[in-house]
Design a binder for these strands. Structure first.
Length: 505
RNA sequence: GACUCCGUAGCUCAAUGGCAGAGCAGUUGCCUCUUAAGCAAUUGGUUGAGGGUUCGAAUCCCCCCGGGGUCACCA
């Protein structure tokens, strides 16, 4: 049984009263002639032409100022707010009283009337008739907006508790217009990504989320079970191996935008399910993918924010191509004074790090690539504020990337960084089936004593590759992180409509 | 997973060992151009749950639940 608060009980009593008067608090239909923004815009024109403007608007009551024989109310709809003016002259005292007594903040109403301007100059609907279209029983977290002299709006006592905001996103959205704006921008970003890739002749595809084998990244998967097949399945951790199968099938340019699932920890930039964009482009190498990437992100930034320069916290990030490019060996040398090329084994590199930085604590058992990654994280990454490509990665942490012809320890791979974190990851894809099989075997050995991290051998993927895969460049990007950057939000939970929470109680 | 901080009225917050409070929201009046409307009165609490110390606990201790932050993990 639902437990009602005292405030809810009062509203339930009002609901009873309405019912007793034969008023349906939840009619199936409503009518409107204008949204709030439309009616205000049209009124500007009608005023100049000295023409009366009738309108019927709908929306949710956000603020009321009742004055006995008249009443001012702001209702909010999809594109803004409109003030309603009710007066006993046009209605009756009983109707104004009814409005003031029976309607609460949060109720949806429909109002019909004629546009007018108040003494203070606000375009306002002078109401001749109104009706309830949906009653709100639970009070929305109350918030009041104060408009200062200079036009800035100050929010008083709004919904701020991050837990409540995430768990009850519906209430957050209802009372915090800027949250609605964030998710409109999110939709615009994804639309712009599609628009860019479509214009470059990429084909959008959908590959399995439920997979008999997982792969394409190093992450622990979520496991599930298919009853009819009586088979364990995994939620995908990347799209990579399926998308590259499509290149074998002559599709040349493919992309997918969808959800990946990684059974790992959460942080301001990690969520167990996240939206990923991957694309694969036949006959391109990683330098061409870099160019595509900077073009694409400049296009999206411009499309969504109106500029290629974006404010993110204290930084102004400039997406305009060409981005800064930092070769990994050189970047590590510049920031840590360690030349990884001089230390070709994990053991040597570990000793070099400890010799120069006795206080740092790299994992003594880590393979060379992990130690290089450690140096990047400790010294280089924090310096990568403006959009930057960091390129040429160690082979042993990149089992799906092609080695550099000149250096078997290094692969043709880059990651895009900004604001000190990783945004995307790309490489010239390994398309040699014999080399790929070797890499799978190496990974199997590296993780032999770690059942959870073990990367499974994907025989079908190798079978596909043996038919012949064109040389190609591939790209993956955390879309949520891009949304964070373009909306100036510093937690991934702020750009997810329903971020995960523990079960209540 | 580790560390750390937090949880008080519908919302935002006070009260740091001594009567659980304020603003907004709500309720009842008054008010025909308000906009954080105003004026007057007023309702609302298992202080996240449980246990302990104490004459006395929102406050101190233990444990649990939930959350924030930092770190770890995350090719």
């Amino acid at each position: 049984m639902t437990e009602y608060t005292s405030l809810e009980k009062i509203r339930l009593e009002k609901l009873e009263e309405l019912r007793a008067e034969g008023i349906d608090a939840y009619p199936a239909r409503a009518t409107r002639t204008h949204t709030s923004a439309q009616v205000i815009a049209e009124f500007e024109i009608a005023e100049k032409e000295n023409r009366e403007l009738k309108a019927t608007v709908v929306g949710r009551i956000r603020a009321t100022r009742a004055m006995g024989k008249l009443s001012f109310t702001h209702i909010e709809d999809v594109d803004g707010k409109i003030q309603l003016f009710l007066r006993m002259n046009e209605l009756t005292q009983a109707r104004v009283d009814f409005f003031n007594k029976m309607f609460d903040l949060g109720d949806f109403i429909q109002a019909e009337g004629v546009m007018m301007r108040t003494k203070t100059g606000e375009a306002t609907l002078h109401v001749h008739d109104f009706k309830l279209i949906a009653k709100s029983i639970s009070p929305l977290p109350a918030a009041k907006d104060e408009t200062l002299e200079d036009g800035t709006v100050v929010r008083h006592a709004g919904l701020e508790d991050p837990e409540l905001r995430a768990r009850q996103r519906y209430a957050d959205l209802a009372v915090n217009p800027q949250v609605r704006e964030t998710f409109r921008k999110r939709a615009a970003i994804i639309k712009a990504l599609r628009e860019f890739l479509d214009s470059k002749d990429f084909l959008e595809v959908e590959t399995p989320i439920l997979q008999p084998l997982y792969g394409g990244a190093a992450a622990r998967p979520f496991e599930t079970h298919h009853n009819e097949l009586n088979q364990d399945m995994y939620l995908r951790i990347s799209f990579e191996l399926y998308l590259k199968r499509l290149l074998v099938g002559n599709l040349e340019r493919v992309y997918e935008i969808g959800r990946d699932f990684r059974n790992e920890g959460v942080s301001f930039k990690h969520n167990p399910e996240f939206t990923q964009l991957e694309f694969y482009c036949a006959y391109a190498d990683y330098f061409q993918v870099m160019e595509l990437t900077e073009q694409m992100l400049a296009f999206v930034a411009e499309k969504v924010t109106g500029s290629t320069t974006v404010k993110f916290g204290e930084h102004e990030l400039d997406f305009k191509p060409p981005w800064k490019r930092v070769e990994m060996r050189q970047g590590i040398l510049d920031t840590s004074a360690i030349d990884i090329a001089q230390h070709k084994t994990a053991d040597e590199l570990f000793r070099a790090i400890k010799a120069k930085y006795p206080n740092k604590t790299p994992d003594p058992k880590a393979p060379r690539g992990k130690l290089i990654d450690f140096l990047v994280g400790e010294f280089l990454e924090p310096t990568l504020i403006q959009p930057t490509f960091l390129y040429n990665y160690p082979r042993d942490i990149s089992p799906l990337a092609k080695s550099m012809p000149s250096d078997p320890l290094t692969v043709e791979r880059f990651e895009g960084y900004l604001a000190g974190f990783e945004l995307c990851n790309a490489f010239t894809e390994l398309n040699d089936p014999l080399d790929q099989e070797q890499r799978f075997l190496e990974m199997g050995r590296d993780y032999a004593d770690d059942e959870e991290e073990k990367h499974p051998m994907d025989e079908d993927y190798l079978r596909a590759m043996r038919y012949g895969m064109p040389p190609n460049g591939g790209f993956g990007m955390g879309v949520d992180r891009l949304v964070m950057v373009l909306t100036d939000k510093h937690s991934i939970r702020e750009v997810l409509l329903f971020p995960p929470s523990r079960k209540e109680e």
